[in-house]
Design a protein around this nucleic acid. Structure first.
Lengths: 123, 123
DNA sequence: CTGTATCCATAGTGATACTG
DNA sequence: CAGTATCACTATGGATACAG
């Protein structure tokens, strides 16, 4: 039975999250292997589906679609379909998406600093 | 065979990460359901194992131990064992752990803002 | 070109019982 | 008190084939 629902990732207990802060909420929106990377690539410029695949070399069609859908659902990415032949779809960040910039700059800075501080660690 | 190694979470392809930035590196150190919460609780004050269990009501012994070990291994948390009876162990943030404060304040702020902006969204 | 459907492997998490 | 061991389940991610 199990009622499989593979069309959505990160749909864990929201109840648990609600007990905590915006931080945890944010982490769940951003969790997973690809979302931050996608956001990062879209911050630079708006891109088409195939362009995202090129700048995210290891991602599969399925995962890109899935992650993009969730990002769209969560209001971080806007999707524009052009009624053309061949079909064209463009993705770009919303205001909320762009508002994340300071955060991940901070996170990136911390990551780099901490990485250096522990660079002798085995991989 | 599969060589099960359940003692460590978040040990995915580091190769993929290396292509990217400190942000992604940081996300892998911080990923998972509990780490940010643990860090958050430890920033307020140093705590014992049982005290952490109390402030993290839904966590299991196993997960708390696992996450704490990784945090310790990654240099974010310091563990102090007191040779007493009954045993006492205290956890506290390292300098690197504390250095994350600005980041998660930023993330939390974004989370709260975005949450309000989308609060009409269905759960 | 931009996806969707199906099947599958693995990582992450949790429940429970047991130990120094 | 502060863990460890074992087993099980679910979510996440991936391969491949197919479709509008």
């Amino acid at each position: 039975m199990t009622t499989r629902k593979p069309t959505s990732t990160n749909q864990r207990n929201r109840q648990v999250l609600d007990e905590y802060c915006g931080m945890t909420y944010a982490l769940h929106l951003l969790g997973g292997r690809w979302k931050l990377l996608i956001l990062y690539k879209l911050e630079q410029q708006k891109r088409r589906f195939s362009e995202l695949k090129q700048v995210l070399p290891h991602i599969t069609d399925r995962m890109l679609t899935l992650q993009l859908r969730e990002l769209e659902h969560d209001g971080l990415v806007a999707r524009t379909v052009f009624a053309e032949v061949p079909p064209r779809v463009e993705y770009e960040l919303t205001a909320s998406g762009h508002a994340l910039s300071p955060t991940w700059k901070s996170l990136e800075a911390w990551g780099n600093t901490h990485r250096q501080a522990t660079e002798t660690m085995p991989g």
